[in-house]
């Protein structure tokens, strides 16, 4: 997996290097390095390091320990829930996304007490709204449409 990851980063860096060749617009005549100079230098150094790392990895040929299926499933569901949460945060607002997200997230991590899970989700959401939204006037996502209107009742 490390080999694949590093190779992908290497490809990404090559792509960025090609992109950086199009960075023009030297408006400051004495700026000899220009906007592309520093990123290109860093990319070249990174690519050299990648070659060294890849060489070392291939030489070592260490077999990676894979996660057991149950743990992997929990992790995948956790990441998926997190992604859904971020996706819905802007459209349904902080309250209506955080409540189900925290409830389902806790349950996914194996906490069995449903009542406590619900109470915790509710308390955490309410505390954040009170502390951040009302006391410190930090703007929390409000959502759109009816969710936006509803959010004004709380923060």
């Amino acid at each position: 997996m490390e080999l694949v990851g590093i190779s992908l980063i290497g490809v990404g860096l090559l792509f960025l290097f090609i992109q950086s060749m199009g960075l023009k617009g030297i408006t400051v005549s004495k700026d000899q390095i220009g906007p592309a100079g520093f990123p290109q230098l860093v990319i070249i150094l990174s690519l050299l390091l990648i070659i060294y790392i890849l060489f070392t990895l291939m030489k070592a040929k260490k077999k990676e320990k894979s996660l057991d299926w149950r743990k992997r499933k929990v992790l995948i569901v956790h990441v998926f829930l997190f992604f859904l949460y971020l996706l819905f945060l802007d459209s349904i607002g902080f309250i209506f996304s955080t409540l189900p997200y925290s409830y389902l997230g806790i349950r996914n991590l194996g906490y069995s007490d449903k009542k406590k899970t619900f109470l915790f989700s509710l308390t955490m959401t309410a505390s954040i709204i009170l502390l951040f939204g009302r006391l410190f006037l930090v703007s929390l996502p409000r959502g759109i449409g009816v969710f936006r209107e509803l959010s004004y009742f709380f923060y």
Binding site: G25, P35, P39, L49
Partner: peptide, 25 residues
């Protein structure tokens, strides 16, 4: 460690270049 630092340095170049105003990455 050096490689990770290089990636951090590269990431810091994203955005408007403060000297020339060129958009980078």
């Amino acid at each position: 460690s050096l490689f990770a630092a290089c990636l951090g340095l590269l990431l810091s170049t994203v955005g408007l270049d403060s000297i020339n105003g060129v958009e980078r990455f």
